[in-house]
Each structure stands twice: as C-alpha cells, then as structure tokens.
C-alpha cells in the first residue's frame, strides 16, 4: 500500500507542479463547453464531457511517456508492475476528479432541470475511462506524437459519430454520451444502465490491457537467474 500510494502521490505532485499543463487541462473542457453554450445545453454538456475525457487521457498519455525511463529503475528498486500502473492510475483519477468538480459546479449553476446525479455519473465515467485509456496509448505507442495523434483521432470520431450507430458502442467514451442523454433529455433509465455498464466494462478492459502492457515490459526476464542471498 505504501508503494502504491507513493507512486500515486508522485504522479499528482508531478502534474500539480506543471501549472501551465494544469491550466490547459481546465481550459480544454471549458472551451468545449462554452463553444456550444448559446445553443442547446445538452450539446454543451456532451462537449464538456468529451473535453474532460480528452484532458485526462492526454495527461495520462504524457505522464506515462515521462515515466517510461524511470519505471525500470523503480522496478529494480523493489516495485512490482502493479504498484507502478495502479499507483499512476490512482493519481490520474484524483487529478481527473479535481478537474471535474469545478465543471460540475459550472453546469449546476449554468443550467436547470437536469438530472444532476446523471451529470456527475457521466463525469465520473469520463474520468474513469480516460486515465487507463491514455495510459494504454502511452504504453503501446512509446512516442508521444503518435500517441497524441491517435488520441485526437479517437476523440474526434467519438464526437462526430452518431451515438445510435452500432459502431459507436465500440468507442471508449460512449458511456458518457448515453448517461448525459439520460441526464439532459430525461430519457428512460435504460440509457443510464447501459451507460454505466459500458463504462465499467471499458474501464475494466482498459485496466487489464494496461496491466498486460506494463507487466510485459517490466517482466522478469528468463535469462536472469536470481540466487538466494546468503
């Protein structure tokens, strides 16, 4: 637990020390929200959710990249792979919540008649999925430019795709849209249910994929034989 929390703490410290990054992480969802604000509130809430998702996954992508050279050393220093990826994920989830809270306040003040529990749930889903999603891209694509481009593609597809299309369910942040629809348009509860299920399933899948990728990279190699220390 000590190791896990230390990695989480250092992830947070690193991000918090980058004031500019933090500011931009807040600016991105805000811009997404404001750009659609004069029209229909549902659109701005959906855009806001995507903004949060994008901000958190970008942060996850870059912290994963930055830690790439450090992790082998930490592994040798006594960390197990799961301390490293779970600790980092924990830190990113906390940052995600820190980003989401003011936006929840913004929506609450700026609108009325929404299911606010649903808005909160959608934000939670966005954060939950975004952290392992960004980390996975960072783990699979070691170079940041490639990773960023892939992230851009996914989020744009997500934004432009009609959520009713069958393929839309394959996009990682589909859950946010479904729950947001439930919250804004007061649709029936099946939207909420399948949204939450989707978020849980996608998060679990992504965490497993991150675990696989990181554990493979930091695995004990077969050619090394460790004798018991006498």
């Amino acid at each position: 637990m000590h190791r896990l929390s230390t990695v989480a703490e250092m992830t947070l410290r690193e991000l918090v020390r980058r004031r500019g990054v933090l500011l931009l992480l807040l600016l991105m969802p805000l811009a997404f929200y404001l750009i659609r604000r004069d029209a229909y509130i549902g659109q701005s809430v959906r855009a806001l959710l995507l903004g949060i998702a994008w901000a958190v996954s970008t942060a996850a992508l870059f912290t994963t990249g930055a830690a790439r050279d450090l992790e082998p050393r930490l592994r040798l220093a006594g960390y197990r792979p799961h301390h490293l990826y779970l600790g980092r994920m924990l830190g990113l989830w906390v940052i995600g919540l820190v980003i989401a809270v003011p936006f929840f306040g913004l929506v609450a003040v700026d609108s009325d008649g929404l299911r606010y529990g649903g808005v909160a749930a959608a934000m939670l889903c966005a954060v939950a999925v975004a952290a392992p999603f960004g980390m996975l891209i960072g783990a699979v694509l070691p170079r940041e430019l490639e990773g960023t481009l892939l992230l851009l593609t996914v989020v744009t597809v997500q934004m432009l795709l009609d959520p009713a299309e069958a393929g839309a369910r394959l996009t990682p942040f589909w859950s946010c849209r479904e729950i947001a629809t439930w919250a804004v348009d007061h649709t029936d509860d099946s939207y909420l249910t399948r949204g939450v299920l989707h978020a849980v399933a996608v998060t679990a899948l992504l965490v497993l994929a991150v675990a696989g990728a990181v554990s493979a990279r930091l695995r004990r190699r077969r050619h090394v034989r460790q004798l018991p220390v006498t």
């Binding site: 250092m10 690193e14 050279d69 450090l70 050619h223 090394v224 220390v229």
Partner: peptide, 23 residues
Amino acid sequence: RGQVTLAGRLAYCPQQGGTADFL
C-alpha cells in the same frame, strides 16, 4: 542467447533519463 546469474540485489544507473523532470 546467454545467462545472467545474480546473487544479491541489483541497482542500475542508466546513462540518462532515470529521473523525473518535475520531481
């Protein structure tokens, strides 16, 4: 090919990049 046998704890100091920029 080949084998490495270690008897004891090992530490490795890379040529560069073993540190975190913002810590």
